[in-house]
């Protein structure tokens, strides 16, 4: 049975530490654009930790919500791409074929999560920062859209390794960079088609919701809502 990669984000565990954000930059060769370009809205963060304030002082509260590509089953970005640069793989990933992208940016508009990022210029790594680049991940050129891939390079490597060793993939052994870094264990990645996997079991949690589910994009990321504290009965 084909894999169907998915993720669970436990908002009760997320502390907004943003280890995932830098881990993603490091793993996926995401350029930093510098202060001037960042000020013009060109910063790229395939995963971001959204934060929202509620209430006013002193009852103000803040909530964190990591948002990355939701790898939708019914992805709006895919239909609108005129060149099939954005398409669904048979393992349920929303693939972005950089070489096929002509830069209409329509996919980014169609995506209600705004998790697609565009190379407005050629990415620069001031020497010798290019030495940090991950050789397993292709660099993107100016005019190309990019986004979270669920670290497809890791998925491929793990599958190759498993095949070489003639075994099945082990749940939890294969993780995208964000989930691997996440200290609080808020990000759980795995195969939704494997009913025994942690991600499959957690996505059935009663706390589970989908982001902007009403749009019908059928995202493969389940958000486990924060749980309130209720005073337990004291025996």
């Amino acid at each position: 049975m084909a894999h169907r990669w998915g993720m669970v984000v436990d908002l009760d565990r997320c502390t907004g530490c943003e280890a995932c954000v830098t881990a993603c930059h490091a793993e996926n060769n995401i350029p930093t654009v510098g202060a001037a370009e960042a000020a013009r809205g060109r910063a790229m963060h395939w995963i971001r930790v959204e934060r929202y304030w509620e209430g006013e002082f002193p009852e103000a509260r803040l909530t964190f919500r990591p948002v990355l590509c939701q790898q939708c089953d019914n992805a709006p970005c895919e239909a609108v791409c005129p060149t099939y640069a954005s398409h669904q793989t048979d393992e349920g990933l929303n693939a972005q074929v950089y070489n096929r992208c002509i830069g209409t940016r329509y996919c980014a508009n169609a995506c209600m999560y705004n998790v697609r990022f565009f190379n407005f210029f050629h990415p620069q790594w001031e020497k010798p920062l290019q030495l940090q680049l991950n050789p397993d991940v292709s660099l993107r050129e100016s005019g190309v859209m990019e986004k979270c891939t669920f670290c497809v390079q890791r998925i491929r490597a793990a599958k190759l390794e498993a095949r070489a060793e003639a075994r099945e993939l082990v749940d939890g052994a294969l993780q995208p960079a964000c989930a691997q870094a996440c200290p609080a264990g808020a990000l759980v990645f795995g195969d939704l088609n494997d009913p025994e996997s942690r991600v499959a079991r957690l996505s059935e949690s009663p706390r589970g919701t989908r982001l902007l589910e009403e749009y019908g994009a059928e995202p493969k990321i389940t958000y486990l809502q924060r749980q309130g504290w209720h005073e337990p009965d004291i025996q």
Binding site: C81, P82, T83, I102, G103, N119, E141, S142, G143, V144
Partner: peptide, 27 residues
């Protein structure tokens, strides 16, 4: 376009890779 020199990919032409434009796309 981000890469205008590839605009011709919108046209349906018999390419070596047998890729046609995505007719689902309003573009």
């Amino acid at each position: 376009l981000g890469r205008p020199w590839l605009a011709f990919w919108l046209a349906p032409y018999p390419s070596a890779r047998e890729i046609w434009p995505n007719f689902r796309s309003p573009l």
